[in-house]
Design a protein around this nucleic acid. Structure first.
Lengths: 119, 119
DNA sequence: CTCTCATGGTTTCCAAAGGGTACCAATGGC
DNA sequence: GCCATTGGTACCCTTTGGAAACCATGAGAG
């Protein structure tokens, strides 16, 4: 059975933990078009704080999803780029965002129905 | 551009927050085969605590992803089942788990390379 | 020489979420 | 009365997420 993700010891869980981070998802989407600098990412991904963005990027680097290239310049320049592995992750992520855009209305409606239920 | 998920005010973000919960993902996978009871889910999804499972199920119900059916029996019986909306979410989620199973080795290897790098 | 600006973070602090354990209500069996 | 089962809830603590401030470096302005 493929769904051994149910076993907490299965490494697949480890992936879900990665996907289960909305910032990682947004970083993958942001880098899909090519390398970007830290501040670019920060501006592009609305609402992310530098600390969390750094954490996210470092973890993704550790997991082999992206590379971090520091240029010895002033002011500093650091470019982040997806590895082939990270790039391949873009496809399933795109499937999620496609689903999201298609069904977001239904979810919002369900939520409104539930929350605002007048009795 | 479809990636308006970058805007924190875009409702697509709301979906990512949902997907961005590994327990929701596992619940969808668990219910893909048909309705299940609370304790079944709890046993099937290794490592989830009842509190968190309840939270997850309630949120998913609110979002229209599943239904909760309480039978007036003793001991109590509660069945959870995916709605068509929840069922449709199974496809992109499957894409993620497929990716995970295919590339988990690479991620684990990258992580080991990074962590254990002897110098 | 000092002041300012820009970049790519780090540090500190606080609130929120996640998770573990214990417990509850209702009823059947013993 | 006591235990077991089910589907949770309550309590508490640790971890995480997030806001805001600060830092090092060097160029350019004054």
């Amino acid at each position: 059975m493929r769904g051994d993700a149910f076993d907490p010891d299965c490494p697949t869980r480890l992936i879900l933990d990665r996907i289960g981070d909305k910032w990682s998802v947004l970083v993958v989407l942001s880098l899909a078009g090519g390398p970007r600098r830290f501040t670019e990412l920060r501006r592009r991904i609305g609402g992310v704080t530098p600390k969390v963005l750094t954490q996210t990027l470092r973890t993704m680097e550790r997991d082999g999803l992206l590379t971090r290239h520091v240029f010895a310049e002033v002011p500093p320049r650091v470019e982040y780029a997806l590895t082939p592995l990270g790039l391949s992750l873009g496809r399933p992520i795109q499937a999620i965002t496609d689903w999201a855009e298609e069904h977001v209305e239904a979810v919002v409606a369900a939520r409104a129905r539930h929350d605002g239920l007048p009795g």
